[in-house]
Simulated scan of single mutants.
Amino acid sequence: MTYLVTGATGGFGGYALEFLKDLVSKDQIYALVRSEEKAATLKEKGYNVRVGDYSDINSLSNAFDGIDRLLFVSGAPGNRQEEHANVVKAAKDAGVQYIAYTSFADADHSTSALAADHIFTEKQIKEAGIAHTFLRNNWYLENEMPIIGGALASGKFVYAAKEGKTGWALKREYAEVAAKALAGTEYPEILELSGSPITYAELAAALKEATGKEIEVVSSDDQTFVDSLTAGGLPQPVAEMFLSFQHDIKNNQLDVTSSDFEQALGKPLTSRVEAIKELLN
C-alpha cells in the first residue's frame, strides 16, 4: 500500500507526515511538493517525494502514479474549484483507491463563502466513485494568532464576531485524524471535526489564564477590528479577510457541536489554555 500527502511542505501536511510515519512504513509514504527546491528537507527526512501542482493536471497524473491512498489537503482560495477538479481527475485516472479530503465545517449546510469550493470538491470526489472520508475541519487555533499576538502586544483582545462561537482546535490535532484516516482507520464518510464551540470572550479568558496577563477584552465594530490588525502589522487586505471570517463566526458558521473529533482521535482534545501555551511556546 502506498500513501501520498499533498501540501507536504505546509503546516497541516507536515504534521500529517509526522503522524503517518508512526502508522505505516516510511518507505510507503510519498510527499507532494510544488517544486524540486521545496523537496530537499523532506528528502533529508527520508520521505519519497513527488513533484506536482494543483494547477497542472499532467504533473498530478505523474505524481499520483502508483499511489493507493491520498490525503488531499485543500488548496488556497482563488482558482480552487478548477485546481481541485484536477486533483480528483488525476487521482481517478491514476487508480487512487481512497481520498481523505480536508473540507469545511458543516459544509453542506453552510452559507459561508468559504464553503462553496469544498461542497464542489466533495461532489467531485463522490462522482469520481473513489472511496473517501470528508474531514470537515472547523477552525485552527493558529488562525487566531494575529488577534492573540495583537492582544499580547497592545493589551487589548479585539474581536468583531459578537457572541458567535467557534470549535477551535490545534492544527496538529486535525492532522492526526487525517493521518489515521489515510493509514486506513475506518471512519464514517463524514467527520465533523470540531472542538467544543466557545466565544471569543471565552477564548480571551483562556489567553489571560495561559499567560497570566491582564488583557482588556473588546467586542468591537468592524472598522475598529480591522484597525487593530493593521496596527499590529497586517496588510489592509489581509485584515479585511480576517474580518470576513469574523462575519462568518458571528453568523454561526463555525458553531458546530460534534463528538466526532475526540472519538476519531481516541483521546480528549488539548484544553484551550494548554493549546494557547503550546502555540506561544
Rank of each mutant, 00 (worst) to 15 (best):
Tyr3Asp: 01
Leu4Tyr: 03
Val5Thr: 03
Gly7Val: 04
Gly10Phe: 06
Gly11Ile: 12
Leu17Trp: 07
Leu20Ile: 07
Lys21Leu: 09
Asp22Asn: 13
Asp22Pro: 00
Leu23Ala: 13
Val24Tyr: 02
Ser25Met: 09
Lys26Cys: 13
Asp27Met: 11
Asp27Glu: 15
Tyr30Asn: 03
Glu37Thr: 10
Lys38Asp: 14
Lys43Val: 11
Lys43Met: 14
Lys43Ile: 12
Glu44Arg: 10
Gly46Thr: 10
Arg50Lys: 10
Asp53Phe: 02
Tyr54Ser: 10
Asp56Ser: 13
Ile57Arg: 04
Ser61Tyr: 01
Ser61Arg: 14
Ala63Asp: 03
Gly66Tyr: 04
Ile67Glu: 01
Asp68Met: 01
Leu70Lys: 03
Val73Ala: 03
Gly78Glu: 15
Glu82Pro: 00
Asn86Gln: 07
Asn86Pro: 03
Lys92Gly: 00
Lys92Met: 01
Gln97Gly: 10
Tyr98Trp: 13
Thr102Phe: 05
Thr102Asn: 01
Ala107Thr: 15
Asp108Cys: 09
His109Ala: 10
His109Trp: 11
Ala113Trp: 13
Leu114His: 03
Asp117Gln: 09
Ile119Thr: 11
Ile119Ala: 13
Phe120Tyr: 14
Lys123Ala: 15
Lys123Asn: 15
Lys123Val: 10
Gln124Pro: 02
Thr133Leu: 12
Leu135Cys: 13
Arg136Pro: 09
Trp139Cys: 05
Glu144Asn: 13
Gly150Leu: 11
Ala151Val: 05
Ala151Phe: 07
Leu152Asp: 02
Ser154Trp: 04
Gly155Ser: 10
Gly155Arg: 09
Lys156Tyr: 05
Phe157Met: 13
Phe157Asp: 12
Ala160Gly: 00
Ala160Ile: 01
Ala161Pro: 04
Lys162Pro: 00
Lys165Tyr: 04
Trp168Asp: 02
Trp168Cys: 06
Trp168Met: 04
Lys171His: 13
Tyr174Asn: 00
Glu176Ala: 04
Ala179Arg: 00
Ala181Leu: 08
Ala181Thr: 05
Leu182Met: 12
Leu182His: 07
Ala183Gly: 00
Glu186Asp: 15
Tyr187Gly: 08
Pro188Ser: 07
Glu189Pro: 09
Ser194Val: 05
Gly195Asn: 04
Tyr200Pro: 01
Ala201Val: 05
Ala201Gly: 09
Glu202Trp: 02
Leu203Cys: 04
Ala204Gln: 03
Ala205Ser: 07
Leu207His: 05
Lys208Arg: 12
Lys208Thr: 09
Gly212Tyr: 02
Lys213Asp: 03
Val217Asp: 08
Val218Ser: 01
Ser219Val: 06
Ser219Tyr: 00
Phe225Ala: 06
Phe225Asp: 03
Leu229Val: 03
Gly232Lys: 09
Leu234Arg: 06
Pro235Gln: 10
Pro235Glu: 12
Gln236His: 10
Pro237Cys: 14
Val238Thr: 01
Glu240Gly: 05
Leu243Arg: 02
Phe245Asp: 02
Phe245Thr: 04
Gln246His: 08
His247Val: 10
His247Ile: 10
Ile249His: 04
Lys250Tyr: 07
Asn251Asp: 15
Asn251Trp: 13
Asn251Leu: 14
Asn252Gln: 11
Val256Asp: 09
Val256Thr: 03
Thr257Glu: 15
Ser258Leu: 11
Phe261Ala: 01
Phe261Asn: 03
Glu262Ile: 05
Ala264Arg: 00
Lys267Val: 04
Lys267His: 10
Pro268Cys: 07
Thr270Met: 08
Arg272Thr: 01
Ile276Arg: 06
Glu278Leu: 14
Leu279Glu: 15
Leu280Pro: 02
